[in-house]
Simulated scan of single mutants.
Amino acid sequence: KQVIEEVISQETGRVFELTSGPLIRLTLIEDRSGDGYIFCLVMHHIISDGWSMDVLQKELFTLYNHFKSGSPAVLPPLGLQYKDYAFWERSELEIRSSLSKDYWRAQFSGELPVLALPSKGVRPSIKTYNSSHVSGFVSVDTLSLLKAVSLTNGSTLFMTVLSAVKVLLYRYSGQEDLIIGTPVAGREHGDLQDQIGFYVNTLALRSSIDGEDRFMDFLSSVRETTLLGYSHQSYPFDRLVEDLDIVRDLSRHPV
């Protein structure tokens, strides 16, 4: 077991060479303490996202089960390849970029807020990824109430929880201008559902909070901002950062 863990650690810790590849590594390790094997797959994030891993896992198990039973393994052909998407994205940016660029620039006009949460530590001069996490559970009753609030407002559960998080950050920081980033799958076209590749994009959603507002009014505002963000979700976040031409603080995210 220790040898297997060492091999896996070595494979997952090995640096990818982006210029020469490969960007995916497969290793099959025999478990001599039993009668099985460990399949280790390491893939660079630049060619995959969370959605891709679900697709890859589903197809691997489909092929494995077919081979195991001796039946022919045929996966349905893809209507599009990632190169087709990449070509479309470049073309689409040339066609629609003006409208989306104007929208996002308007969203982030003026001075951008910097979240200042109370902390007992000192922020490092260069951002690190040293962190910890706290896990918790939401009761069934609370979840039911959240869904009921969402339904009443015509919002999704995500919009309601996003609004609650923004209110929480407002209570801790006292700041009335907040930006929260959220990933979107970036697979608006039906032929992209079964693709493996990096399609995910980041939406930066900005909200103004007035402490005198009712929560339902604020939720309506967040709902509108989120829906507008979705309508412009194909505009790459890295392009937005370039457009804003902001002074970078290496201790923080660009927006």
Results as ranks from 00 to 15, higher is better:
F16I: 02
H45C: 05
K147A: 14
L250C: 02
R187T: 00
T160M: 08
S69R: 11
I24W: 11
V3T: 13
D84L: 02
H189Q: 15
D243N: 10
A116L: 03
Q175P: 12
E59R: 08
F158M: 06
T156S: 14
M216F: 02
L93E: 14
Y199C: 15
I29F: 02
R187G: 12
I47H: 11
L162C: 08
L240C: 07
H189A: 15
S220P: 01
A73M: 10
L78P: 10
V55K: 05
L56Q: 00
W104H: 00
R206T: 00
G197L: 04
I180W: 07
Q175K: 03
A148I: 05
E111A: 14
M43L: 14
Q175D: 10
I38L: 03
R239H: 15
L23S: 09
R223T: 15
E176L: 06
S144R: 12
L80F: 04
Q57F: 08
K83I: 06
A116V: 10
Y199S: 05
D102H: 14
G229D: 11
Y37S: 08
Y64E: 04
E89F: 15
D243T: 00
P76E: 03
L157P: 05
S150M: 02
N130Q: 14
L75H: 11
R90Q: 13
L228A: 13
T142S: 14
T225R: 14
G174T: 00
F39S: 11
K120H: 06
Q193K: 12
Y129L: 01
G197N: 09
F16R: 01
L143S: 11
E94Q: 13
R214K: 11
A106Q: 00
E224H: 13
D191I: 00
G36C: 04
K166E: 09
R105G: 00
S125T: 14
S125G: 03
F67C: 12
I246A: 12
I179F: 04
E92R: 13
V3E: 15
S109T: 04
Y85S: 05
F39L: 14
V241Q: 05
G181L: 01
R223C: 15
S251I: 09
R239L: 14
G186C: 07
R214V: 01
D177Q: 04
L205A: 02
S163G: 12
S71F: 05
T128K: 11
V7W: 04
I4W: 05
Y235W: 03
S48V: 02
N65S: 06
R214F: 09
L78E: 08
G211S: 15
S139M: 06
N201T: 12
S155Q: 04
H232A: 04
R248V: 04
V140D: 07
L60F: 07
L157H: 13
L169I: 05
E5A: 07
M216A: 05
P118T: 10
I246H: 13
Y230A: 01
L192V: 00
K58V: 00
D35I: 02
D210T: 10
S132Y: 06
Q193R: 13
S234G: 05
H232K: 01
S109A: 14
V15H: 07
